[in-house]
């Protein structure tokens, strides 16, 4: 049993995109704020802060997770994957990210990090999705720019590409 006092910052250790990292958090610190302010991983965006918009979606121990509905204290010792972990290298985009660019599946980009995390997680487990499944998945995200259609096209094209060529994962 571990009890963390409310007015003290406590050390939190996680694996972020495969790298062991640490920061400090009060019990009330949200994972979204911990990622951005303590770990400097500002790719995860904060939208509504009550679990509705999906902008802050990350993957914790293989589970899609609203980082605004999760405390940093809850994920101590967990493996976290964020949008920073999607690109194979600093100057290269992954297959899904390339498809987003080709299809104009983002405009302002605020919602994009969360949507990419959901799709990356889903396509890894469901390599041959149909459109209805992608739509169901996207119901957990709000996008005010695209009207979703280009996002669906990008997701389906990325899925087909990933299925046809498991090796080619970058544009380099």
């Amino acid at each position: 049993m571990t009890r963390l006092k409310s007015d003290v910052r406590h050390p939190i250790h996680v694996s972020l995109n495969g790298e062991p990292v640490a920061g400090e958090a009060e019990p009330r610190t949200l994972l979204s704020d911990f990622l951005r302010h303590q770990l400097g991983a500002t790719g995860t965006h904060v939208g509504c802060e009550h679990g509705v918009c999906g902008a802050c979606t990350v993957v914790v121990d293989g589970m899609l997770t609203r980082s605004c509905l999760t405390l940093a204290a809850q994920v101590d010792g967990c493996e976290i994957k964020t949008v920073e972990g999607l690109a194979p290298a600093a100057d290269r985009l992954g297959v899904l990210q390339q498809a987003f660019r080709r299809h104009h599946a983002l405009q302002c980009g605020f919602c994009t990090a969360g949507i990419l995390m959901s799709l990356d997680h889903y396509l890894a487990r469901n390599p041959a999705p149909i459109e209805a499944e992608i739509r169901d998945l996207l119901s957990g995200h709000l996008c005010r720019c695209t009207g979703y259609t280009p996002i669906i096209q990008a997701a389906l094209e990325a899925a087909a590409q990933l299925a046809s060529s498991k090796k080619e994962t970058s544009d380099a």
Partner: peptide, 12 residues
């Protein structure tokens, strides 16, 4: 918004 302050107990 952010949550108000509370203690956190990780029960085993």
């Amino acid at each position: 918004m952010k949550p108000p302050a509370f203690d956190y107990l990780r029960a085993e």
